[in-house]
Amino acid sequence: MSIDGPDIVIETTGLTRVFTRRAGRGLRSLRRTALTAVDDLTLRVDAGEAVGYIGANGAGKSTTIKMLVGILVPSAGSVRTCGLDPVRDRRILARHVGVVFGQRSQLWWDLPVRESFAILAAIHRLRPSDATAREEELVARLEMGGYLDTPVRQLSLGQRMRAEVAAALLHRPRLVILDEPTIGLDVLSKQRLRQFLLAERAAHGTTLLLTTHDMGDIERLCDRVVLVDHGRAVHDGDLAGLARTVGARRELVVDLLAPSPDLVGIPHTVHLMSDGGGIRQRLAFDADATTAAQVLAAVASRAEVRDLTIEEPDIEDVVRRVYEASGRDR
């Protein structure tokens, strides 16, 4: 089922935001400098897409989000979100967008989760029957039944983030913007949240814009990734294409049953390190040249494998490589 509305959910052309700040010390300092946080950004996100919007801290991600939802006014360029002008139509846009900031809460700290949902349903002017049905759906799918009557301040981080996501989705928004939603979560909490978001997209055709430093979030949730540097988009495509542009490699970590000589000479791999006399070894491989299964088969032909882990390129490392390749001064 898809959500009615324009086919283009996010569209920016030449979007720019410049901040002016005082330079020097003291309140009487008159010298000002201009900081360009978002620079001539042209971006399109179609209905139903899931896009990872990534970059180093200070690259302009949060500033972009604030312009998409009408919190900040662009210095230049244009932006349309869900077919609306975010500043002029901010109240109408709020009905179509749900936002989750990993470091900020939209829940009432001293109230039980259930009461926060009731307040938000009233703010969005949901009919009582619709609000009840949607709340029951979200509570069941996010496994929140055990703490609906618990004050938000008493929740664990994982419980609170599930409640935050439910609050953002209570009014069935067309666009969900998640800013570092899994930061600080344990592995199980991350898995639950990712599975829910995948199911929500499949059931309702929700469009997703995700900023994160967690490669797992991007890999499991996003069809496409946009990398920003100094407020400019320097890559727009799939994650594999981003990694290929800088030669980033996947890594296979194997734990062997007995110490073994270094596993060198395996086709399309580079042996990185050995620990414990060779019981644990790490090999890097190019996913375009071979597969994890082929590498593992070659390893197993030389030593008995007890356990293994496949590690994807770290987003920070990929971003750093892109910056270095572009020759930008960080």
Rank of each mutant, 00 (worst) to 15 (best):
E11S: 02
L15D: 09
T20H: 12
T20E: 14
R25N: 12
R25P: 00
L27F: 09
R31F: 11
R32W: 05
R32N: 10
R32Y: 03
L35E: 12
A37M: 08
V45I: 15
D46N: 13
D46M: 10
A50V: 02
A50Q: 05
G52E: 06
I54W: 07
A56Q: 10
N57S: 08
A59F: 06
G60C: 04
G60P: 06
G60F: 01
S62K: 07
T63P: 13
T63G: 00
T64D: 05
I65K: 10
L72S: 15
V79G: 13
T81F: 03
P86K: 00
V87T: 15
V87N: 11
G98D: 01
S105W: 12
E115C: 06
I119G: 06
L120P: 02
A121G: 00
A122D: 15
I123N: 10
I123T: 14
H124Q: 11
R134I: 05
R134E: 14
R141N: 10
G146C: 05
Y147A: 03
P151V: 04
R153W: 01
Q154P: 03
L157W: 05
R160G: 08
R160E: 13
R162W: 10
A163Y: 04
V165Q: 00
A167N: 06
A167T: 09
A168K: 01
R172L: 09
P173V: 02
D179Q: 09
P181G: 03
T182M: 05
G184S: 06
L185W: 03
L185R: 04
D186T: 07
L188D: 15
S189Y: 03
A199S: 15
R201D: 02
H204C: 01
G216L: 14
V225A: 11
H230D: 11
D236Y: 00
D236C: 06
G237S: 10
D238T: 14
L239C: 12
A240F: 14
V246L: 12
R249W: 00
V254E: 03
V254D: 06
D255G: 07
L256E: 07
L257M: 09
L257Q: 13
P259T: 04
V264R: 15
V264D: 15
H268V: 05
T269W: 04
T269A: 05
V270E: 13
L272Y: 11
M273V: 14
G276E: 02
G277K: 12
I279K: 08
R280L: 03
R282F: 10
D286G: 00
A287D: 12
T290R: 04
A293L: 13
A298V: 02
A298H: 09
V299F: 05
V305M: 01
R306D: 15
E311D: 11
E311R: 12
E312N: 03
P313A: 01
D314I: 09
I315L: 15
I315S: 09
V319E: 13
V322L: 06
G327Y: 01
R330G: 12
